[in-house]
Computed example of a mutant assay.
Amino acid sequence: MPQITIDYSDTMENAFDREGYALALHEVTVEIAAAKPEACKTQFRPSTSTVFGYEDPGARGHAIVHVTIGLLAGRSDETKAQLAQAALELLRGHVAETAFTVHASAEVRDLDASYRRFDR
């Protein structure tokens, strides 16, 4: 915990400072949600297929980034909203200007009660 997953259009490959974003997001998550630094884990998942509205997908005029942060239960809705907003604000600083439109979103959710983990 926290489990952070970032799905993004592969058109952003050269415009998205993923490592810098993850490290900054870990700091904000520790600050806002009282997570432990060593517990923050981020996985990036590029998507080769992004479809936006009625646009021809081959036009590649749009890119999507969605940040999902899973936390152990117990944070208030206000804390979750504050963290989601901070995740979006940080994203602005880690995505370069592009010829395509970037659509970004973030959500913070509780991990299910069945969540378990191990380290090896």
Score class of each variant (00 low, 15 high):
A84K: 02
Q82W: 01
A87G: 05
S49C: 11
T29E: 11
T101F: 02
A33P: 08
G70S: 06
G58Q: 05
G93T: 04
D112C: 07
I4F: 05
R116P: 00
R45Q: 13
R117I: 14
A34Q: 14
A84V: 03
E13F: 06
A73D: 14
A84S: 13
L91R: 00
E13T: 13
E38K: 12
S105F: 02
T50N: 12
P46D: 04
V30D: 10
A87R: 01
F100N: 02
R75H: 11
T50K: 02
G58L: 06
F52S: 07
D7W: 05
A87F: 02
V30P: 09
A84C: 06
V30L: 09
A39L: 08
S47F: 12
I6V: 15
E78V: 14
K41Y: 07
R109N: 01
K41V: 07
A113N: 12
Q82Y: 00
R109E: 07
H94I: 01
P37G: 03
R120Q: 10
A24M: 06
K80R: 14
A35E: 15
L83P: 03
R120G: 08
A106T: 08
S9Q: 01
T50I: 08
L71Q: 01
G20L: 06
G53S: 04
A106K: 03
E78W: 01
A59K: 14
A63I: 03
D10I: 13
N14S: 15
F16S: 03
Q43G: 08
D7A: 10
H62G: 02
H103D: 09
G58M: 05
D119W: 12
T5Y: 11
A59G: 03
A96G: 01
E97D: 15
D56T: 00
A39S: 14
D7M: 03
D7C: 00
A34L: 12
G93R: 08
